[in-house]
Each structure stands twice: as structure tokens, then as C-alpha cells.
């Protein structure tokens, strides 16, 4: 067994609940050659890695590598083990994920790796954008990594993943729900544009009771996460989330809400946070589920149940 990579001692990270989940660009630049560290790029744009990536980084594509090709689900334990082996990642390897769009897909890939219980997963604070803007080295050379042994581990969907039926239960109970899409998607306005069906959902709006906190509020313009104090002011102060609340985050297909899941569970240390990856594309196409079409969270379903 080789040891995991050391932690980034940057003071900013220290204020987060789990500083071991983030690294800075400066730290990563110094640790690219660490023997048991693999950098993985996960982007929205499937071609971006090919235009140039962090030296030594492997590509993990959310669509090709993490999704089952037939069913709308993630790969199986066998599929994940094959992927890790092909990328030269062992069970004790430190994986540093980074990507475009303020790390949406990198956070999503990290979340999927967490479903499989991979222990040492980290995000590069600021993602691809910050690395590029700092003029750091990029290469088009695809690394030749030796394949590694990776055990077949069954995916655990119980702790950090929510399904539609569970969300229905969740809104009837005292669960907290965070819709991280833009205000236009939240109110239902965006689907109402004539002639331009965009989002792949038949109905617009949001899940009743969900508060709207766009994912972007957790990020600075350079793609880095806001400070621990700033994040607490938003999610604890404004939204009033408590440490023991049962929280579900969703967006359109689960990628932006992975970003918020990371903020809530890893940076702020909330204990019970799940990502509803079915998200609006599932909810807005479902028959007979409640929808609120306004810019307000809407009637609390608990009140309706009592009345």
C-alpha cells in the first residue's frame, strides 16, 4: 500500500468542514508527480480535454464513462472498477477532479466516485478556468498510465442519492429542498418561451417547497468556492439550514446540484445531504407529481396534508 497524497495546508481551506476535499492550483502544480495521486478532468464540453489539459491528467467523461449506456443510471460496480483500472486508479489513490463550468462535472464525478465509496477524492478549487487563467502548464499529450487493480464495490445509493419516490416522501415530511437552477428555470418561465423547447421537460416550475439558491451563489467569478463564512451566510443565514436537517438538492440533470451537494456536505459539513440526480428532467416529465409554478417556494405540502 502506498500512502495517500498529503493535504493542502492553504489557510482558506482550513475553515471548511472538510479541508481534505479541496486543493488549490498552487498545491496541485507542486504535486503532479506524487506517485499515488491521479488528476482527472471532467467537463461539460466533451472535447475540452483534447484541446489541452493539466499534465498527466486523465479524462473521465460523465456521459460515456459514468452513465450506464442503456438505462438512466450510473455504471455498476463492475463498470466503475473497469473505469478506474483503465485510468490507473487504485482504491487508495488520491483523485483530484477538475473541470469546466466552475467544476460542475468535476463535482458530479466526485459525487459518483463517492457513491462507490472511493475514500480520497478532492476537487481543484477554481477548476479548469483558474488553472488556465493563471497561465499554468497544459498539454495535449494523453498520459500512458499502467492499468491498476480496482475492487468491484457495490454502489451505495442510500446515503447521498435521492430518487423520485423519496423526494415525494421528503416534501411530505420535514425535509428541506434546494433547487439550484436559475430563477427563470425555477419559476417555470424558461419553458414557457414559445417555439423553443429547451430543457427536455414537459412542465416548467419547481418541486413545491423548494427554495431557490442558484449553484452560482456558492462560487466566485474565478470559479473558486466562496469562503466558509460567505457560504454559511447563504445556506445557514439566509436559508436557515441546520446541521441536522435532511436536505435534498436538485437541478436539471443533477450536475449543478452536485456542486451544491459538495458545498453543503463537504465544505459546510451538513450531515444529511442527498443529490436528486433525476432532477427536473424526471420531475417535470412525471405524471401526477405536484409542481409549483411561480417564483415562490409555494404551499408547504405538509399544510395541505393537514387540511
Amino acid at each position: 500500500m502506498s500512502t495517500a497524497a498529503e493535504l493542502d495546508p492553504a489557510p482558506k481551506l482550513d475553515a471548511y468542514a472538510h479541508p481534505e476535499r479541496l486543493v488549490t492550483t498552487a498545491w496541485l502544480a507542486e504535486h503532479l508527480d506524487d506517485p499515488n495521486l491521479v488528476v482527472a478532468e471532467s467537463d461539460e464540453d466533451v472535447l475540452l480535454y483534447e484541446t489541452g489539459h493539466i499534465p498527466g491528467a486523465v479524462k473521465i467523461d460523465w456521459h460515456l464513462d459514468l452513465n450506464d449506456p442503456v438505462e438512466r443510471d450510473y455504471v455498476s460496480g463492475e463498470g466503475f472498477a473497469r473505469l478506474m483500472e483503465a485510468k490507473g486508479i487504485r482504491r487508495d489513490t488520491t483523485i483530484v477532479f477538475y473541470g469546466d463550468k466552475s467544476n460542475w462535472w468535476a463535482a458530479y464525478a466526485l459525487w459518483v466516485a463517492t457513491l462507490f465509496g472511493h475514500q480520497d477524492v478532492r476537487l481543484l478549487d477554481g477548476g479548469r478556468q483558474k488553472w488556465v487563467e493563471e497561465g499554468r502548464q497544459l498539454t495535449t499529450e494523453v498520459p500512458r498510465r499502467d492499468t491498476a487493480d480496482y475492487p468491484v464495490v457495490e454502489r451505495d445509493d442510500a446515503v447521498i442519492r435521492a430518487f423520485r419516490e423519496q423526494v415525494l416522501e421528503h416534501i411530505r415530511g420535514d425535509g428541506r429542498l434546494v433547487d439550484v437552477r436559475s430563477p427563470g428555470e425555477y419559476s417555470g418561465e424558461l419553458l414557457a418561451m414559445p417555439d423553443y423547447p429547451q430543457e427536455g421537460a414537459l412542465r416548467g416550475g419547481h418541486i413545491p417547497g423548494a427554495a431557490n439558491v442558484p449553484w452560482k451563489r456558492a462560487a466566485n467569478d474565478d470559479g473558486t468556492f466562496k469562503s466558509a463564512d460567505q457560504l454559511r451566510a447563504i445556506y445557514e443565514g439566509e436559508l436557515g439550514l441546520g446541521k441536522d436537517d435532511d436536505i435534498v438538492a436538485y437541478c436539471r440533470i443533477g450536475e449543478r446540484s452536485s456542486h451544491t451537494w459538495f458545498v453543503l456536505s463537504q465544505l459546510l459539513g451538513f450531515q444529511r445531504v442527498r443529490n436528486y440526480d433525476g432532477s427536473w428532467v424526471e420531475w417535470g416529465n412525471s405524471v401526477r407529481v405536484p409542481i409549483e409554478r411561480s417564483s415562490e417556494p409555494g404551499p408547504d405540502p405538509r399544510l395541505k396534508a393537514v387540511g
Binding site: D45, V46, L47, L48, E50, T51, D100
Partner: peptide, 9 residues
Amino acid sequence: PPEAPTTRG
């Protein structure tokens, strides 16, 4: 934009 090579493609 260059940071969207797929769309550019």
C-alpha cells in the same frame, strides 16, 4: 467561444 470546442465543432 474557444472554451466550447464541441459547439465550435
